[in-house]
Deep mutational scan, measured.
Amino acid sequence: QKPIVRVFLPNKQRTVVPARCGVTVRDSLKKALMMRGLIPECCAVYRIQDGEKKPIGWDTDISWLTGEELHVEVLE
């Protein structure tokens, strides 16, 4: 079983991306966001920890988040 990260996107959409070492959250999600007309710069990404949303940086190595759920939200 490959290491993955589940990602909840705006508009009730979601995707799953591989959690590859040395790849940033930005690079992992860029294609999924672009297909939906979004760019990382207009969004914020969060991980859910103890039921709370914790913001994470787009430059975080995605392999550190293996098995986690991330939420991407459009910044107002």
Rank of each mutant, 00 (worst) to 15 (best):
R36Y: 09
K53M: 06
G57A: 10
S28H: 01
F8I: 08
E52T: 11
P40V: 14
K54T: 09
V23N: 06
R36P: 06
G57P: 13
C43A: 07
V5N: 01
L33G: 08
R36G: 11
V45E: 00
I56R: 01
W58I: 08
G22K: 03
R20D: 07
V7T: 01
L29W: 00
D50I: 12
V7L: 02
I39T: 15
Y46A: 12
R20K: 14
G57Q: 14
I62T: 11
S28M: 03
G51Q: 11
I39A: 14
M34N: 13
K31N: 03
E69I: 11
V25Q: 00
E68G: 10
L38Q: 09
L65W: 11
Q1F: 15
E52Y: 08
Q13F: 04
H71C: 12
A19W: 02
Q13S: 05
L70H: 01
M35C: 10
S28V: 02
M34P: 04
K12Y: 11
P10Q: 01
E68H: 10
I56V: 14
E68R: 10
D50S: 09
D50A: 07
A19D: 01
P55N: 13
W64Q: 14
T66W: 03
Q1V: 13
E68N: 08
Y46L: 11
P3K: 15
T60K: 10
L75R: 13
I39M: 13
K31R: 08
R26I: 13
K53C: 09
M34H: 04
H71K: 09
E76F: 01
W64G: 14
K53W: 08
M34V: 13
V45M: 11
P10Y: 01
S28N: 02
I56E: 09
H71W: 11
V74A: 14
R47I: 05
R6D: 03
E41C: 04
V74P: 14
K30V: 06
I39V: 09
L29K: 00
T24H: 04
A19F: 02
K53E: 09
K54Q: 10
H71P: 00
F8D: 03
Y46P: 00
E76N: 04
N11L: 04
Q49A: 12
G67M: 06
M34S: 14
T15D: 02
L33E: 03
E41M: 07
Q1M: 15
Q1Y: 13
C43T: 11
L65H: 13
R14A: 07
I39C: 03
Y46C: 15
K53A: 07
E73P: 00
R20E: 11
E76K: 06
C21D: 14
E69V: 05
K2I: 15
S63D: 04
T15A: 03
G22A: 05
V45L: 12
N11C: 01
M35Y: 11
Q13L: 04
P10C: 01
E76T: 12
I48E: 12
T24C: 04
K31C: 05
W64P: 11
K31G: 05
D27A: 08
Q49P: 04
T15V: 04
L65Q: 13
L29N: 00
G67A: 06
W58D: 05
K53R: 09
S28Y: 01
Q13N: 08
R26K: 14
E68V: 10
V23Y: 08
N11S: 06
I56S: 02
P40I: 15
L65V: 12
E73T: 03
V45Y: 07
P3Q: 14
C21W: 06
S28W: 00
E76I: 02
G37V: 02
T24K: 08
V25N: 00
G37D: 15
Y46G: 04
P10A: 02
Q13G: 06
V74F: 10
P18T: 11
R26Q: 15
C43M: 15
P10V: 01
I4G: 05
V23H: 11
T15Q: 02
L38I: 15
L75D: 15
H71D: 05
V25D: 00
W64T: 15
G22D: 04
V45G: 04
A44R: 10
R14S: 09
